[in-house]
Amino acid sequence: MANLPIRLQPGAAVDRIEGWEADAEGRCVLKVRVRARPIDGEANDALIRLLAKSLGVSKSSVTVVRGGQSRSKMVVVDGLDDETLDARVAKILSGD
């Protein structure tokens, strides 16, 4: 199980994983944009679908464990360790 800190921007023009950035406290978070609006959990659902597809895991393996009503979230990915998750995110960001 791997933890992934996320900064989500709902209402974007396209669903996309942007890259790493520092949050207000200086922690490294993955910036993700989704087209869905933050209404009735639609943005969280879109985030889960995008991460599952991009990381090559099932949707049931991706869970928002903190920040369900916030742009700052903590996501847990079951079936991946931190090292494997970091490698997959790096591959996504490199465009390979």
Score class of each variant (00 low, 15 high):
Trp20Thr: 02
Trp20Ile: 03
Trp20His: 01
Glu21Ala: 09
Glu21Asp: 00
Glu21Met: 11
Ala22Ile: 00
Ala22Thr: 03
Asp23Thr: 00
Ala24Lys: 10
Glu25Pro: 00
Glu25Val: 02
Glu25Asn: 10
Gly26Glu: 02
Gly26Met: 03
Gly26Gln: 05
Arg27Leu: 08
Arg27His: 09
Arg27Glu: 13
Cys28Arg: 15
Cys28Asn: 10
Val29Phe: 03
Val29Gln: 09
Val29Lys: 01
Leu30Pro: 09
Lys31Pro: 01
Lys31Gln: 12
Val32Asp: 04
Val32Gly: 08
Val32His: 09
Val32Cys: 07
Val32Thr: 01
Arg33Glu: 13
Arg33Thr: 04
Val34Tyr: 02
Val34Gly: 02
Arg35Gln: 14
Ala36Pro: 09
Ala36Trp: 03
Ala36Tyr: 05
Arg37Leu: 15
Arg37Gln: 15
Arg37Asp: 13
Pro38Asp: 15
Pro38Val: 01
Pro38Thr: 05
Asp40Ile: 00
Asp40Glu: 15
Gly41Ala: 05
Gly41Pro: 05
Ala43His: 08
Asn44Ile: 07
Asp45Asn: 14
Ala46Lys: 05
Ala46Leu: 07
Ala46Tyr: 02
Leu47Ile: 06
Leu47Arg: 02
Leu47Met: 07
Leu47Phe: 10
Leu47Asn: 06
Leu47Gln: 06
Leu47Ala: 03
Ile48Glu: 04
Ile48Asp: 04
Ile48Phe: 03
Arg49Ile: 05
Arg49Glu: 11
Leu50Gly: 07
Leu51His: 05
Leu51Gln: 07
Leu51Tyr: 05
Ala52Lys: 05
Ala52Asp: 09
Lys53Trp: 12
Lys53Ala: 13
Lys53Leu: 11
Ser54His: 02
Leu55Pro: 09
Leu55Met: 02
Gly56Pro: 11
Val57Pro: 06
Ser58Glu: 14
Lys59Gly: 15
Lys59Tyr: 03
Lys59Asp: 15
Lys59Thr: 13
Lys59Met: 13
Lys59Asn: 14
Ser60Thr: 12
Ser60Glu: 15
Ser61Tyr: 03
Val62Glu: 09
Val62Ile: 10
Val64Asp: 13
Val65Trp: 04
Val65Met: 08
Val65Glu: 14
Arg66Cys: 06
Arg66Ser: 13
Arg66Leu: 14
Gly67Tyr: 13
Gly68Trp: 12
Gly68Leu: 14
Gly68Lys: 08
Gly68Pro: 09
Gln69Asp: 15
Ser70Phe: 10
Ser70Arg: 12
Ser70Trp: 07
Arg71Asn: 15
Arg71Gly: 15
Ser72Leu: 13
Ser72Phe: 10
Lys73Ser: 09
Lys73Arg: 08
Val75Leu: 06
Val76Pro: 02
Val76Gln: 14
Asp78His: 12
Asp78Gln: 04
Asp78Thr: 12
Gly79Thr: 12
Gly79Ser: 07
Asp81Ile: 06
Asp81Gly: 13
Asp82Trp: 00
Asp82Phe: 00
Asp82Glu: 13
Glu83Asp: 12
Glu83Tyr: 12
Glu83Asn: 03
Glu83Ile: 05
Thr84Ala: 15
Thr84Phe: 00
Thr84Asp: 13
Leu85Pro: 04
Leu85Trp: 03
Leu85Glu: 03
Leu85Asn: 06
Leu85Ile: 01
Asp86Gln: 08
Asp86Lys: 00
Ala87Ser: 11
Ala87His: 12
Ala87Pro: 01
Arg88Val: 03
Arg88Gly: 00
Arg88Tyr: 08
Val89Glu: 02
Val89Cys: 01
